[in-house]
Nucleic acid binder design. Structure first.
Lengths: 341, 341
DNA sequence: TTGTAAGCGTTATCAT
DNA sequence: ATGATAACGCTTACAA
């Protein structure tokens, strides 16, 4: 009744009046064990549903086959898809992936890292939170020779990084709005202090300048990444003496919120205001108007992360160089930006 | 250079010419250790960044503080929010949560379970895949006395289950459409063979019957859960000799796809066809028209799962009774169902 | 062909 | 106040 009875190698040994080592060898078909006893032991183990205790193996081999992923959030398509990519590669290799959400806070990021190290994970993959300014917890990872791969968000740590080319993606987005005839393009730019935000902003500024368009402070507003964070800044844009005729939003969530607010204001997308997002979330093709956006290779990004990790594992050396893999993004034109001229 | 140098208790013992046990005690402030050496050891450990190896503790204590969650998908708001709830409760208790996606397939579900058991997790939480017909892998969990909590999707396993009251949610949805004047209500019902699908379908049928409305086979179409799975069935509905004037969709994704297709067909939501979804995803309030839906207490569901688990841990006994927690859902009326009569 | 023993890192028990 | 030892489950030289 209250006998947890998890079968161990010793239980089997007792049954066969042999030593644990014999059982161990028999179970892995070691040729030096009598074919007969080998069979018997295997069958018995099978029957009892014996499973080798991975915890003891981890201790023995100093290898846990566990990796940890730290992301700001999983309740959004972007990071969830990256995780998907990571798991696609790593699970067939026998790794277990644990996932942690910082919610963009610094404190949990630090404690997750320390927990992961205490758990002796074989690798840590992280997308740094927007609040993080100090990177010493990541230095600790490197100091313990644990492979560290960063993704999506860039920072000043000497570790391999996989990210999307936000700059050229943003350039495509803004160029597209200009081609569609927009003269007054606003930018809902995302949270302050993130490389992502910064790169896209720079692209936005560069393109406006290149085309001789005015850069207006009041057209550049910070937002969050989540849908409801897009409403208020958009309202501010619309009540400006001269509202924009195009909006480049930091992501599809914000773009959807913007379209919603524009509609409520009695204006039309794209004719009054064209809108373009970033990410190409699954519903971008189904909302109204269908949302133009920049498609990021999210799943591939996750796969790259996983593969960089496997490389380090195979090389048996931890990369502390600032290797950077930059994946291209892609312009997806839908109706939210197609102005009838 | 290539010295992984992870500090162990032995390293510290050597440094102080004392035994590992002394270090162990010193580090946990055991009163029997000389206050002086205690301090010294603690400081030294601190300086070197010593972290107790949780793997060895897991082996010793037969408790890993790891739990596994198996879900069909995380690239959607629903399950991601549940995970959120689980982690909110369990992380402060020192648990690490690993997440696995079955993608609605049976095979990975089985192998995830076996891996989890081999890893000696302290608990397993699962939302069974739509493909799963055989439950012996879950029986194995119970047999090993590992706490098992099921959620969202019901099945015939003698384990505690936490789910939302889909039936009454669906009743609210369909009743609402009827109140809005819909006479020909279609149901995009989700994948076959899931309790979720079945419960909602039953509610749909019951409500139609109660109101004396015809039940038409051609109005009941299976879909998936993901957005793009909603387009084709909706097209089929629209090309019917007598298309519906209301659609109850299995979730918000499918509802959004439906609205998209309706629009492309030159019809209007809600005037030609009212639409209601299920889940209340974050963008439901921002799409066009804003989507009426049934709000599920996702985060709370996750929290309930975690708390049921903690109860079992504290009781030191595994529940194999069919305890069921059913959380209420809530009707959220927005524009997609508000017909102007 | 099989058994013995040491070890992975830590702690609890029982000495000293 | 501290040390020695065994134990958690398993593997692998090394013996026999």
């Amino acid at each position: 009744m209250s006998k947890p009875k998890i079968i161990t190698i010793k239980d089997i040994a007792r049954k066969f009046n042999c030593s644990p080592s014999t059982v161990s060898r028999a179970l892995k078909d070691h040729p030096s064990i009598n074919v007969y006893t080998r069979k018997h032991i295997q069958e018995y183990a099978q029957k009892l549903g014996y499973q080798p205790n991975r915890v003891s193996l981890s201790l023995l081999n100093k290898k846990t086959y566990n990796v940890g992923v730290i992301v700001p959030n999983i309740t959004g398509y972007f990071n969830a898809a990256i995780l998907d990519g990571i798991q696609t590669i790593l699970e067939p290799q026998g790794y277990t992936v644990s996932i942690f959400q910082t919610k963009e806070f610094y404190e949990p990021e630090v404690s997750y890292i320390d927990n992961l190290l205490a758990n002796r994970v074989d690798g840590i993959f992280a997308s740094v939170s927007s609040e993080t300014k100090d990177y010493s917890h990541f230095q600790r990872v490197l100091a313990q020779q644990v492979p560290l791969i960063l993704f999506d968000r860039d920072c000043e740590i000497e570790a391999p990084t996989v990210r999307v080319d936000h700059y050229s993606g943003a350039v495509m987005a803004v160029e597209h709005l200009i081609q569609m005839g927009c003269k007054r393009i606003a930018h809902l730019k995302g949270p302050e202090g993130l490389s992502v935000t910064q790169e896209r902003l720079t692209a936005y500024l560069d393109v406006l300048e290149k085309h001789g368009l005015d850069i207006r402070e009041e057209y550049i507003l910070p937002t969050g990444f989540r849908t409801f964070k897009g409403a208020y800044p958009t309202k501010k844009l619309l009540t400006l003496p001269e509202p924009p005729d195009g909006i480049f939003a930091v992501n599809d969530n914000i773009a959807m919120a913007a379209m919603h607010v524009i509609r409520e204001h009695g204006l039309t997308v794209p004719d009054d205001i064209a809108v373009i997002g970033f990410d190409d979330e699954p519903h971008a093709a189904y909302c109204f108007p269908t949302l133009s956006t920049i498609k990021q290779p999210t799943v591939d990004l996750g796969k790259e992360v996983a593969m960089l990790f496997l490389q380090q594992v195979q090389a048996e050396s931890v990369a502390i160089a600032k290797q950077e893999i930059v994946l291209p993004s892609e312009l997806v034109i839908r109706n939210s930006s197609l102005k009838k001229r």
